[in-house]
Amino acid sequence: MTPVPGPVTIGELLRTADLLLAGGVEASAASRHRGASLALRTTLEIAVNRAVEAQVTGLAQVSVRARMLCLRFYTDPETARRANAIWSQVCLACHYHRYEIGPTHAQVVAWRREVAALISLLADS
């Protein structure tokens, strides 16, 4: 059994994504890209939770959709829209959707960039 992990930090998750993107893990490219997407999704959710919790206590506990709907009223609407858009893209990448091949390296790198930008925007709001 693996030990129960403690609360993970945004920094750790971004480093994990970078590691996977850099090819430092023994796995197929498709798996590494999906793994990195997963890490990015979690990173983004943590950042969103922090932002809404800072505004209204208890909001981090509601469903992700409700949280995302509230986000646009608690931060800059454009930031909220971008967060929502990137979140939906990384979510897609995490699933083995029957129609879609996995994301490309370039795409995940771009998402990594967008997630990092949103983390700082959400922290400022």
Binding site: T57, L59, R65, C70
Partner: peptide, 15 residues
């Protein structure tokens, strides 16, 4: 969206 939010359980009053 409004319906989804209205149905959300334990939604803080402020929201």
């Amino acid at each position: 969206d409004a319906r989804a939010l209205a149905k959300t359980s334990n939604l803080p009053l402020a929201a």
